[in-house]
């Protein structure tokens, strides 16, 4: 035996051990590496701003001049003490309910219709998406003409059938209905397409066997489509919730001032945030509002999730 052979012998198992270790790491670590790009990007563009905003909200912070002295929770107490904040919260929730609920019900209906074998199905599917690709500002201009208080088309038509003009901009509830209409115009088709995709994934034999068992159209819709659609529904409802609570474009372009109406009839939380941060240049208070909005969205999201789960599983039992 030479010395080199002697040396080689203990070396070989070591090399195997190392490559084995590499292999084991590969199995253990690689999946995390593969998903890491998302989390790295999220940490940079999602988590960092979130934490930075929290840091800003604890200071007096001018948008331009930058960081001022530490003020603790003063920004939060100030915001929570403002009537405007609570009005904005009320309006946001109200516009959210007025838009999301009819929007999802309508989207479900449209999706169910489109799920049938229609002639020129691509055409119909594209047309429901059309409002979505129109710029919100353009939608604002069109609806501004429709909902104008004195010379608007809708009040004009109402006048012809003897209904007194509605104060679309002055009355809080009417204004919110008008804004919800703009939101629904834009998002119903988008949600309908997502629901349609979910419906198409439902195995057709379920319907066939149900039909053989004598189930009618309605029965099939409520006992097969809805329960099978549960994951898609949860997705649609959660995204609609987040979008609905962050509503900004529509109420902003609803008048020429973008400040939410003379009596803050349609001031939403994001608009309030924008007014404080970009009009009054108070970044600290704006950040406090951003965090309060974040908390509100999480709360509503959780409530929503609980309700959606229950509804979906109840209907599941009907089967």
């Amino acid at each position: 035996m030479t010395t080199s052979a002697l040396r080689a012998k203990p070396r070989t198992p070591r090399r195997i051990a190392f490559s084995q270790k590499l292999g084991r790491w590969d199995v253990k670590i690689s999946p995390y590496l593969y998903v890491s790009p998302f989390f790295i990007v999220f940490a940079v563009v999602g988590l960092f701003p979130l934490l930075y905003t929290a840091w800003v909200s604890l200071h007096k912070w001018d948008l331009i001049a930058g960081q001022g002295p530490w003020v603790g929770l003063d920004n939060f107490t100030f915001v929570l003490g403002q009537d405007q904040f609570w009005e904005a919260l009320r309006n946001t929730l109200s516009i959210f309910l007025l838009s999301s609920v009819p929007q999802i019900l309508l989207a479900l209906l449209i999706a169910a219709v489109l799920d049938n074998n229609l002639r020129g199905s691509t055409f119909w599917r594209m047309s429901v998406l059309l409002p979505y690709i129109i710029m919100p500002v353009a939608v604002g201009l069109i609806f501004g003409q429709l909902f104008a208080d004195k010379y608007g088309l809708i009040n004009n038509l109402l006048g012809h059938i003897g209904i007194p003009a509605i104060g679309w901009h002055t009355d809080a509830f009417s204004a919110q209905i008008a804004i919800a209409t703009m939101v629904n115009f834009r998002w119903t088709g988008y949600n309908a397409l997502i629901l349609l995709a979910g419906m198409q994934a439902i195995p057709r034999d379920l319907y066939e066997s149900a039909a053989i068992d004598g189930a009618g159209r309605l029965r099939r819709f409520f006992s097969i489509t809805i329960p099978q659609l549960r994951p898609t529904m949860i997705f649609v409802i959660i995204t609609a919730t987040i979008g609905g609570l962050q509503i900004f474009d529509e109420p902003t372009v609803f008048d020429q001032y973008g400040t939410g109406g003379a009596d803050h009839q349609y001031l939403t939380l994001t608009m309030y945030l924008h007014n404080i941060g970009w009009q009054q240049l108070d970044f600290g208070r704006a950040s406090a509002i951003a965090w309060l909005l974040f908390v509100v969205i999480i709360l509503i999201g959780l409530i929503n999730l609980a309700i959606t789960r229950r509804i979906a599983s109840n209907e599941g039992r009907l089967r």
Partner: peptide
């Protein structure tokens, strides 16, 4: 003049 609030959208 405060016609249309395009600026706000850009701001977001």
């Amino acid at each position: 003049s405060r016609r249309t609030k395009i600026g706000a959208t850009i701001a977001t």
